[in-house]
Design a protein around this nucleic acid. Sequence first.
RNA 1: UCCCCUGUAGCUCAGCUGGCAGAGCAAGUGGCUGUUAACCACUGGGUCCGGUGUUCGAACCACCGCGGGGGAGCCA
Length: 462
Amino acid sequence: MKLMTVKEITALEPDGREVVVKGWVRTRRETKTAVFLEVNDGSRLGNLQCVFDAPGPELASELSKAGTGASVAVEGRLVPSPAAGQRLEVKAHALRVIGEAPAESYPLQKKAHSLEFLREIAHLRPRTNTFGAVARVRNRMAYAIHEFFQARGFVYVHTPLITASDCEGAGAMFQVTTLDLDRLAQSGQAVDYTKDFFGKPAYLTVSGQLNVETYCEALSRVYTFGPTFRAENSNTTRHLSEFWMIEPEVAFAELSDNMELAEEFLKHLVRTALADCAEDLAFFDQRIQPGLVDSLKAVLERPFAHMTYTEAVALLEKNAEHFEVKPYWGLDLMSEHEKFLCEKIAGGPLFLTDYPKEIKSFYMKQNADGKTVRAMDLLVPRFGEIIGGSEREDDLAKLETRIRELGLDEKAYSWYLDLRRFGTTPHSGFGLGFERLILYVTGMGNIRDVIPFPRAPKLADF
RNA sequence: UCCCCUGUAGCUCAGCUGGCAGAGCAAGUGGCUGUUAACCACUGGGUCCGGUGUUCGAACCACCGCGGGGGAGCCA
């Protein structure tokens, strides 16, 4: 008999056909006359109820081994359920326990567990409703990202994870080396990087942007989607040392085109989640973040708000009594300011643009005022910045000046500057942290719960 | 990196002013004519995070260490 998932079986008509269900027992309930086994295989949130009527001694013995967590194969007929709660069920006549999960040692119980406890058993937590749902949403979002860009003629570019240029400038880097550090420490000698694997210091990438710009200036519409690494000692619910990032880059696009793309992109992802992950989102709405589904629907209903940094600061200054850090022009906005702007003022996603050049990266295009750059951050309620991007500086002289002003190593950027030396064009792009997107869409509160095996300072288990 | 909270049964927690270690859930057993995180009854279950100190006496107070959570900063 063809192996079918719970998702496939529960989509069938309960016409009495024979089915085989394979999965893990979520709960077993017994009455005098029947045993109910709920089987889940992760193909969907819902379980498939298998009913054993008046089991004989052999079946009863097998049933006694089918506790929570056991892997089983159930054979039976697919029939309409006579009781409320499910459309159909399996009237079972055979059971095989493939792998037992002894209750006295299996950590997951037939009850709710705290997310903190489940973090300690990251290898078993995908067997819970919450983490199964996160995994399915994460998968659908990854696919939707490719769908979105592919449908618009973007080319997926694989930027390197190891980089020997420390000019990416987006944060502290992890060093990659094959040198024997223990022996080096004992010898007391200075490190000779010409003897290292790459002949010079190498690091894990903190961003694919600079690399992907090179392909943008050849293929016009490109994006990267891959892991990035930050060695920042940040211990928060929104930061990981290893996370996935989406970075589109579009030639000939100006800041307004960039924001249009970002808005369409985020709306596409939210729309897809609502349409294709409805069962999982309903679960998150009920158990994790009440009001989630409505707030996501609201995102689709109207255009995102726009405001310049200068306008935002003026507004914040008028409400200065709300803030611990008093706002002024030139301040890199605190999260309390960002939350105020998108939650209290915009009441939804908000683009902030044209920041002071001093608080933004060297590669952002300077405005005619000489003070601001064509940067944009997309702020969303609940956690602030979700997307950061800009139009890039396409003028060689201005870019060189900026690099010098900031005391950066000009030589390290020579290949990047070549893009402006030869056939330069306006171009724009942005970065979206994949895990932050998953937080946003699922309503989960801690970024360590939306990636299978989180890496953070002092945390690299499993 | 800084600030705050926290660590007691498998899980979630209570434990008052320092005086015999508790509950709910989970598990086991029995009951129950189809259950929905079933229900009812009973039973078993403890290195009170570790160390040191104060005290007649420490889960409780003090100090040191380790673990967990939240917030801030950095950012995506």
